[in-house]
Simulated assay, not measured.
Amino acid sequence: MSNGGECRYVIGQNAYIKLVLHALKHKTSAVNGVLLGRLSGDIVEITDSVPLFHSSQIGLLPPLEIALIMIEEYYSSQGLSIVGYFHANERFDDLELGTVAKNIADHVHRYFPQAVVLLLDNKKLGSLRNKKDKSPAVQVYARDSSSSRSWKQVESDRMTTKEPSANIVLLDFISSQKWNDIIDFDDHLDDITKDWLNSQLFN
């Protein structure tokens, strides 16, 4: 399989919750991060996510390259690789995949042709409380199979959460303001004692 055009995506509960909390912690900034997992047949299994940046560094190459090297070194020993990218726009109502997001996604795609891009959908996130929606609060993008140069939004049912109750658990985390505990690479670069793996988040 040469691209993500035919893939399905399954995201683990912790990976999903982490990326949403990252966006909620920095509501007035664009945020981004990478998705870790593996390819199993035609399913991309996303088992973890690493929040990257929330500042003006979000599109800068040197900090991004440092982060990606550290992430790849850590996760490769677990048999995982970078399988996608997530992004949340600065404005609540902005549902466009912008130039910075596409450029970083292109970089990930070069190493993992089945890469997926998740764009946080704030409107969907806001409606989680009102309905029993089990689907992730994200828009899903993959490389178009007919035009490998462009990212296209795909049907939301191509992405499912591994645990059906992920949105319920997410709401619990939101109600307890758990986003205050999220650490991203920006935080780590400011203070290297801060754990970018967020290994205590779900304890």
Rank of each mutant, 00 (worst) to 15 (best):
S77Q: 08
Q78E: 01
Q78P: 06
L80T: 01
L80K: 07
L80C: 06
S81A: 12
I82W: 04
V83K: 03
V83G: 03
V83M: 00
V83H: 03
V83R: 05
G84L: 03
G84C: 07
Y85V: 04
Y85L: 00
H87P: 02
H87T: 04
H87K: 05
A88E: 12
A88M: 07
E90N: 01
R91M: 03
R91E: 08
F92D: 07
D93A: 04
D93T: 09
D93I: 01
D93C: 01
D94V: 11
D94L: 13
L95A: 02
L95Y: 00
E96R: 10
L97S: 08
G98S: 08
G98E: 09
T99V: 14
T99H: 14
V100P: 05
A101I: 14
A101N: 14
K102W: 05
K102N: 07
K102S: 10
I104Y: 01
I104W: 00
A105F: 02
H107M: 11
H107N: 10
V108L: 05
H109R: 08
H109Q: 06
H109G: 06
R110W: 03
R110Y: 03
R110E: 14
R110N: 12
R110C: 02
R110S: 15
Y111I: 11
Y111V: 11
Y111D: 13
F112G: 07
P113I: 05
P113Q: 09
Q114A: 01
Q114N: 03
Q114D: 04
Q114C: 00
A115M: 06
V117H: 04
L118P: 06
L118M: 13
L118Y: 11
L119I: 13
L120H: 15
L120Q: 15
D121G: 06
D121H: 09
D121L: 07
N122Y: 05
N122G: 11
N122K: 03
N122R: 15
N122W: 04
N122Q: 06
K123P: 08
K123E: 10
K123M: 08
K124Y: 00
L125K: 01
G126M: 05
G126A: 13
S127W: 00
S127T: 10
S127F: 01
L128V: 01
R129K: 04
R129C: 05
R129V: 11
R129W: 13
N130Y: 14
N130M: 01
N130F: 13
K131T: 14
K132H: 12
K132V: 12
K132S: 12
K132I: 13
K134V: 03
K134P: 10
S135V: 05
P136V: 14
A137I: 07
V138S: 04
V138K: 03
V138Q: 05
V138E: 08
Q139N: 13
Q139E: 12
Q139L: 15
Q139Y: 15
V140K: 00
V140R: 05
A142M: 06
A142T: 12
A142D: 03
R143A: 00
S145K: 11
S146Y: 14
S146T: 14
S146G: 14
S146H: 15
S147C: 10
S147D: 14
S147T: 06
S147G: 10
S147R: 09
S147I: 09
S148K: 10
R149E: 14
S150W: 06
W151E: 07
W151H: 06
W151N: 10
K152D: 13
Q153C: 01
